[in-house]
Design a protein around this nucleic acid. Structure first.
Lengths: 225, 225
DNA sequence: AAACTGATTTAGGTTAGACTAAATATTACT
DNA sequence: AGTAATATTTAGTCTAACCTAAATCAGTTT
């Protein structure tokens, strides 16, 4: 039953999980882009993974794909490892948050259950990774977070940055430079009506930061305070 | 020139390196056993790796295989990673020396140059792994060691254990229980003429340890004192 | 409703690395 | 030197993933 999944299959499942967080189903093309392979290859794999026993996903020709419970468990296991690794690299080996994603992308597939346990323990069973993304616990339960994108925070209100789920190292370096790390407390000063550009003031930092809508919807903040 | 080597190829090169430490050349069958695959598969791969430009190994039908300088460099790079990982797991994550080999066998292929550097630095640029095996430095130079197998130590002499290059977890647990870890100082009390069984007394341990020849030739000790 | 466009699938091919069975080479023994 | 035993290689398959090109489907526009 619990087959050993190949690295490739794990990557498919992880991507599908991520894509179906916002949409009901993921499309072949989305997956092909995320995995950087051809759409034809994706179709092949989806057909295979939907015909295993038990199937990892539900797939109907031309109508997208979603994970089954089995597939979701497998995806969560990999995501847990990915995020634990990111956290560990920052905490124990002096990595910065822009360096860890690529590294974790490879290490996640080489992590034994024992190593997962030891790292989890060494970190004190953390609930969030360096980007503020939630880490599923050993039973694969995701911590609940109540959050809104920065783009939806009301002008004049204060909040705390919870999550910056971005993978681009350059973007992350900039964000860090401005003080917009998870945990930072700030006040939303203004938002222009036309293009939604925001001016925000981070506590203990003099100069205000200007954030466009494209970046703003990738920064999640606490709902109150 | 510097092609990206697959995990499989890396494993071939590593095994050939290990086998040619004691013999001039490695045979197809030795490799097949070490890698746990068929001899026919090994032949195929050897032919391929001897025809690359530059070749990783010199191979003559029916007469064994040896690494070229290129192949040796590649092998040393993997061995360096393997041993750094073993050391790190013990030092930083509470692993025991019998748990690390299997883990490192997988992680060594997932280690980036950056991670290698960070771990090396975190450990203080160590020269030996938990089994006492030498770790090649960043330039892939092996530390020199002067050692002899326990089976060649003269009776009545004292020495220090330098290296126990064994991978069997059960064996390693026993050895550790008897106090025979790298660094331990001991005196060789006696060796029976017929089967070479040795009695040795480890400093600060009351009860003598009995070591047979099979194990004895896998324990390397300092030449003097 | 026909036609166009973009998304998706099918068909057929490639590569890496493994396998088994059969053939051949080497080595060891008489 | 001849033969048996062992080691090695050759030949032909297999599987997992990938690819490109061609065909088909779905959704929008005329």
């Amino acid at each position: 039953m619990a087959k050993r999944l190949s690295t490739n299959v794990q990557d498919y499942l992880k991507r599908i999980y991520e894509l179906t967080l916002t949409e009901e189903k993921a499309t072949t093309t989305q997956l092909a882009e995320a995995l950087e392979i051809s759409a034809a290859s994706v179709t092949n794999m989806l057909q295979k993974l939907s015909k295993t026993d038990p199937p990892y996903l539900t797939y109907t020709k031309h109508h997208g794909v979603a994970l089954t419970a089995t597939g979701k468990q497998a995806a969560l296991k990999i995501i847990r490892r990915h995020r634990l690794i990111e956290h560990y690299l920052v905490k124990a080996l002096g990595y910065t948050w822009d360096e860890v994603h690529e590294e974790a992308e490879i290490l996640e597939h080489a992590m034994s259950p024992l190593l997962e346990k030891r790292i989890d323990a060494a970190l004190g069973y953390p609930k969030f990774d360096p980007h503020g993304d939630p880490i599923p616990d050993a039973q694969l339960q995701m911590p609940k977070i109540i959050e809104i994108p920065l783009t939806q925070l009301e002008v004049g209100h204060s909040a705390r940055i919870l999550r910056v789920p971005n993978e681009n190292p350059q973007v992350l370096r900039d964000i860090a430079k401005w003080g917009l790390r998870p945990g930072a407390h700030f006040k939303l000063i203004s938002r222009t009506p036309y293009d939604q550009t925001m001016r925000i003031n981070v506590d203990d930092i003099d100069e205000d930061v200007i954030v466009g809508a494209a970046l703003g919807c990738q920064i999640f903040v606490s709902l109150e305070t």
